[in-house]
Simulated assay, not measured.
Amino acid sequence: MALCSDAIVTFLPILFFPQTIRPDRDSFVGQVAGQVGWVQNWIAEPPWSTQQQVPATTAVVSAVGSAVRNRRAHRLPSLRVFDITFNYRVDSPPGKDPDSQSPLLKADHQLLWTKELCDGELFKVQVPAEPKERRKNYLMFEQTPDKRFTFGSDAITNSYTSWGKPRNLVEAKAELSEEQKRRYFNPPYTIGSAMIWPVRKIHRPTLNTARGMRLRIADRMDLTLECIRRHYAEEPGSPLADVTTNYADFFKLFCAFKQFVEFFHLQDLVTPEGKIDFFLEDDENFKRPGVPTTKDEYIRVREASLKFITLRGNRMADWVEKNHPDIKVRRQ
């Protein structure tokens, strides 16, 4: 029975907590070890009757089967983990977009953004209740029965790994060393780079689409945030002015630029004076394309992006620890 118990200790964390298991060996061992105490207690007081004499092998099989059934019925305790290093490509089907296919990313969005707005209203983002809506929409916020917002998820940083133009960008990437390419290309998709944006059929392009396709922004969050700042300040010159105007009701939910920044943990892109801390010089007035055009610019943009992802992830972790003490936070 001792051998069977050891096997269960190893097996059950994977069975009960698949969303927390990462593929690399060290983190895998560490996460399994983190669940051993719970599993050992479960074995010490198994779900079958202690008065009933059951052969050891039968008891183990019965216990595992019973545990699985109870887990499905949500009757066993579950350890919720918020991991700022988790790569959402891991729990997405191979080749599929984590923004639509990662269950854990959706759950983390709900965790992070369900909180009070500036006027005290609860911004409760949730999966649509109706099956047809659920298939078409990612998350929704129903402000009133007649007023609701639909959101999509997207990464707010870009490595430009697959960009085949402009030519200057392609040439800049080609000059990188192999070590630099390993650092900058195809990075893991973690929560520090994740954001939700409003989506409406009648307002195309969406903010997410426009910021990725318009060369003056080039999918950079520092430049996107400058456009949002100008929207709140009613300043001209934003390459996204038409889009922020179409989604003005979304931005109104946060009352002011400062509250928008704090709500989405974007403080590390803003200076103490309330200005944007741009990744590159000469970006403030959108006089140049947002894409880096030299090797040096590419490295500076990527380093600034990676630093921002780490800082933002830790801000999120701080918020979860403060507001959800029952959730385990993992930072590395």
Rank of each mutant, 00 (worst) to 15 (best):
D6Q: 15
D6H: 12
T10H: 10
P13E: 09
L15Q: 09
T20Y: 01
D26C: 09
V29A: 05
Q31T: 15
V32F: 06
G34L: 01
P47D: 00
Q51W: 08
Q52R: 05
P55W: 03
T58H: 04
A63M: 12
A63Y: 14
S66C: 08
V68N: 01
R69S: 15
N70K: 13
R71A: 14
R72M: 14
P77R: 08
V81P: 09
F82Q: 08
T85P: 02
Y88F: 15
R89K: 12
V90E: 15
P94F: 04
P98F: 04
Q101L: 07
L105D: 03
K115C: 09
L117G: 04
G120I: 12
V125M: 08
E130L: 15
R135E: 14
Q143R: 12
T144V: 06
K147W: 08
F149H: 13
E175R: 11
L176N: 02
L176G: 02
S177M: 00
R182T: 06
F185K: 01
P187L: 02
P187D: 02
P198I: 12
A210T: 10
M221A: 05
T224A: 00
E226D: 00
E226F: 00
R230G: 02
Y232S: 02
P239K: 05
L240D: 02
T245L: 10
T245H: 11
D249K: 10
K258C: 08
Q259K: 07
F264S: 00
H265Y: 00
L266D: 01
L266E: 00
I276G: 02
P289F: 03
D296N: 09
V301T: 13
L306F: 15
K307N: 11
I309E: 12
T310L: 06
R315T: 07
M316A: 04
M316K: 04
D318T: 10
W319Q: 03
N323E: 06
R330P: 05
